[in-house]
């Protein structure tokens, strides 16, 4: 019997494979439960403690830093194929605290708390002095640019009328004061774009089909607007029920990254927006 107090927990190295396994389970959980925005990828493991759990198993108390990728959360592209948002594009990081249970070799998330924050303007301009910064998503110029871009996309489309799901990202071009770059998520409706006279009569498809658009709206000196927009619909994914977190005493925590609370009865993933 060792002398002295024994720590109740153990501390493997942050780059230890077992720590990384728990961290990757946490990142997977983030991306399956994000309500909006972009998928995140693991950047750094900050700390790790492993607690014994009665009657069996261990709980990994892990703190991780993540970075935003360019893949929207509804984009079925595997995370490994998603690019990290570069600093010159105004990167966004996530700071997350997780409790991950390992039992019988299986990892499951007990609690999750994440905050996200954009890089500072100073950092962005240090690597790219003229690069645009993120703009507030509720700015009237942003909302207007999204409306104009979506209308232009629908006007040119031979397919379904697309409805706005969320404004995901926006930037004001610094050298062209009147240019607004926007990224937004859309969903297909049961209307044909060219035939729509009253969008309020259009309904989302029963089997939801989401897409993503990028557009730039530039106001010209005569007051007219130049619009460039491209929209892509994602391949529909088979709906699979998400595992419920195994939480004896689950923690519901508000977060700024947009995660669904873990104690919330889990709807189908496509309905979580």
């Amino acid at each position: 019997v060792p002398h002295g107090p024994m720590p109740a927990y153990r501390e493997p190295a942050c780059d230890d494979p077992e720590t990384e396994q728990a961290a990757l389970a946490a990142v997977d959980y983030i991306n399956k439960h994000l309500l909006r925005g972009y998928k995140h990828t693991l950047n750094q493991i900050d700390s790790i403690r492993v607690w014994p759990r009665r009657p069996t198993g261990e709980v990994y108390e892990v703190e991780i830093d993540t970075l935003e990728t360019t893949c929207h959360v509804r984009d079925p592209t595997p995370l490994a194929n998603c690019s990290v948002r570069q600093m010159k594009e105004h990167a966004v990081e996530g700071d997350c605290d997780f409790h991950v249970l390992k039992q019988d070799g299986q990892l499951s998330v007990l609690s999750a708390k994440c905050d996200s924050s954009p890089d500072s303007a100073e950092d962005v301009h240090r690597v790219c002095p003229n690069c645009p910064l993120l703009a507030p998503l509720n700015d009237s110029r942003v909302v207007h640019a999204v409306e104009v871009a979506l209308a232009a996309s629908n006007a040119q489309s031979n397919g379904s009328y697309l409805q706005l799901v969320e404004i995901s990202r926006a930037q004001f071009a610094p050298l062209q004061a009147a240019a607004v770059y926007v990224e937004f998520a859309v969903a297909a409706t049961d209307c044909v774009a060219k035939d729509v006279t009253d969008p309020a009569t259009c309904n989302l498809l029963a089997e939801k089909q989401y897409g993503f658009c990028r557009g730039t709206v530039t106001e010209k000196v005569d007051g007219a607007e130049d619009v460039t927009v491209t929209c892509n619909l994602f391949q529909t994914q088979p709906v699979t029920p998400q595992p419920q977190p195994e939480a004896p005493t689950p923690v519901a925590e508000a977060d700024a990254l947009g995660l669904a609370p873990v104690v919330q009865p889990e709807p189908e993933p496509l309905e979580m927006i």
Binding site: A13, D15, I45, D46, I48, A91
Partner: peptide, 29 residues
Amino acid sequence: KGVLPGTPAAGGPGPVIRPCPGRIRYFKI
């Protein structure tokens, strides 16, 4: 007490292993 040449003395300077935080995969902001 003496040590063999090339053998780090006990408690002497050596590579410091920092268990945490872990490596940065992309960049730190």
